[in-house]
Design a protein around this nucleic acid. Structure first.
Lengths: 222, 222
DNA sequence: GTCTATAAATGGATAGAC
DNA sequence: GTCTATCCATTTATAGAC
């Protein structure tokens, strides 16, 4: 931390602060205090909180693009889907403050709205590609008139899962949270798998419950 | 409008303002201006914006409870489900500003968070009851190990649908928006219906496309 | 109940010394 | 690059007259 450039430290600390305590709650001065630098110094590096958020979005956008436009050609089974979705959700978790405040944020920074929309489109394309691959490989068979809605459903879940857990307010470890959501998404595909795929899914169910148990959470509220 | 008590007018106008331009953007003075009363007068009736929001939530909570805990015993077909979900989403639409800013809002008013969570629980119970009724009637058959996830999926969609369309940013008439979402939710049930149910669903598909056409929107982006 | 006027508080932003 | 000091703008909130 000590050898980082101030500009880098500002981004790192801001992100942590936003994720933990909410973006809307943090002022420029708060960030400066957390870093133990003066507000003046902060403003020397970034023209206010807006500029910091834009820079953070740059980072987020780049990493999302890497995941979403990377080759999904080698995904052949539900196991592979599991891993892929896990990685996607993990990345979202690292920038979760964007998702907590989405509405307010896109209102305040219209430039971001356009770019965020583009990420959603990439997500849609990635999921579509993934499903097509699975269908070609014979692991899945989805009626044509349901496919579009199913894809939208998956994209939607992969976008708003954090909001749902935020409301539920049962604090879960990040890993459980993500496991649970991946499980949830795979659930959507199960009706369209063959017998083998269904058997596989049962395995995932076990894995999911184990993962929850490991981190001290429970699959079902008491 | 002229014969309404000022207190009522404040609530009515605030809600409209919040829904149209975002809650975070409106100050107490903005609301007073819109009503053409003085800020002092506004503060006489409500101890600031917080008090207004709480009063609006009171209204929302009551109407949601009426819908969610009302008798769903007479729901026997997918058609009935369609109507029921439509009414639910319509109510949410009337208080949509709560949903745009959900994260920030629940952070700012922790008291609201508890109550909002209770509404989600009611939603979950209502959907569960509805599905049980359909299963008893023979219209649906859902594998036991998928049921919980399916219910959560429906609740989640019925909560975050507006956020999704907000991002998509294709301004739709409220009616199309709601139609589309109901269609979307029913899609989740289709894999578990019998042949008759599936045929019925095709009819809904047509209805859905007609509804979109009527309001000048398109089912698919060009 | 409603107004005008004004105080108090907060957060955003910059100038100038080091 | 970094600090201190300060200013400006916005929003909240209240006092006191009508």
């Amino acid at each position: 931390m000590y050898d980082m450039k101030t500009k880098t430290r500002i981004l790192k600390t801001s992100r942590a602060l936003f994720n933990e305590a909410g973006e809307a709650e943090q002022t420029a001065v708060d960030i400066a205090n957390e870093l133990e630098i003066s507000p003046g110094n902060l403003y020397y590096h970034f023209k206010g909180k807006d500029a910091i958020i834009e820079a953070l979005f740059d980072e987020f956008e780049e990493e999302m693009r890497l995941i979403l436009t990377g080759s999904q050609g080698n995904i052949a089974s539900l196991e592979d889907v599991w891993v892929y979705i896990y990685i996607l959700l993990e990345e979202i978790y690292d920038f979760r403050f964007f998702y907590y405040n989405l509405g307010a944020l896109l209102d305040r920074y219209p430039g971001l709205a356009r770019r965020f929309r583009a990420i959603i489109e990439d997500k849609k394309a990635a999921i579509t590609g993934l499903i097509d691959t699975l269908e070609t490989g014979g692991a899945l068979d989805i009626p044509e008139n349901l496919k579009e809605a199913l894809i939208l459903q998956i994209v939607s879940t992969a976008t708003f899962w954090l909001s749902l857990y935020q409301i539920e307010d049962r604090p879960l470890e990040p890993a459980s949270l993500i496991h649970r959501t991946v499980y949830h998404i795979l659930t959507l595909l199960v009706p369209y798998t063959d017998e083998a795929g269904f058997a596989n899914f049962e395995k995932f169910t076990d894995y999911y419950h184990e993962a929850l148990a490991e981190t001290g959470a429970r699959a079902h509220p008491s």
